[in-house]
């Protein structure tokens, strides 16, 4: 597979994130403060209509096609695991997991996901609560649901944002094991946005890019 997520020099307020890319199967960590992480994700998923035409600076290259950020084509190929943002409260857990398939209306993928959902939910220990309303849930459930959705969607690249932060130790251990297993199974690339290198994922990163907020962006280290 030749999937890769790219971005050119990105100005997030006073901070500049230098151009970089994440290839299929590669784990990259981007260390920057929460405001920058949020702006980065906004640029990725919520571009304004005007910017979608020619203002995009992030794109996914997949099988010699280019998908600019902010477009549905881009978002459907990128999985997301955002801290405490894994659920829509007024839907059941099952509807939450199937939402991208129900929205995009691809019957074949919907059928496939519906067949897989019970097995995936059993694997993550959420099969008994699939038909419960999501409502207010713990950080662990949000993280688990995001991961389960990624397993169903099978994206080329996954973007995670501090998804391991704020869990009790035993849940963190369980989630770490689930996420490592799922990433290995999917073989997808991972971009991990975090404020600190001690983000608790336990993953072995190929690169860590540290963004300094004082008008400069420096620092790139090999390995985790």
């Amino acid at each position: 597979m030749s999937d890769a997520l790219h971005w050119s020099d990105l100005h997030l307020g006073q901070t500049m994130v230098p151009a970089a890319s994440v290839s299929h199967g590669e784990f990259v960590r981007l260390v920057m403060n929460y405001t920058c992480q949020y702006s980065f994700m906004q640029h990725m998923f919520c571009l304004k209509e005007d910017d979608r035409e020619n203002g995009w600076k992030m794109w996914l290259e997949s099988n010699s096609n280019t998908y600019p950020s902010g477009t549905p084509e881009f978002s459907t190929r990128i999985g997301s695991m955002i801290r405490q943002r894994g659920l829509i409260a007024n839907l059941t857990l099952r509807e939450n997991l199937l939402l991208p398939f129900l929205y995009h209306g691809n019957q074949q993928r919907l059928q496939l996901a519906s067949d897989e959902i019970v097995e995936v939910a059993r694997r993550f220990g959420i099969d008994s609560s699939l038909d419960e309303k999501a409502g207010e849930r713990s950080t662990y459930t949000h993280a688990l649901m995001s991961l389960a959705r990624c397993v169903l969607v099978k994206p080329a690249i996954i973007v995670a944002q501090e998804v391991h932060i704020g869990m009790p130790p035993e849940q963190l251990d369980r989630f770490r094991a689930h996420s490592m297993q799922a990433l290995e199974q999917l073989g997808a690339g991972l971009l991990y946005l975090t404020e600190s290198v001690d983000e608790g994922s336990g993953l072995d990163y190929a690169r860590t890019l540290t963004i300094v907020t004082d008008h400069q962006s420096l620092g790139s280290a090999e390995g985790g």
Binding site: Q42, P72, S75, T76, I78, I82, R85, I88, Y103
Partner: peptide
């Protein structure tokens, strides 16, 4: 923050 959750799914 469910608007970001929806956007991240291309919705």
């Amino acid at each position: 923050g469910e608007d970001l959750t929806l956007s991240s799914m291309g919705i």
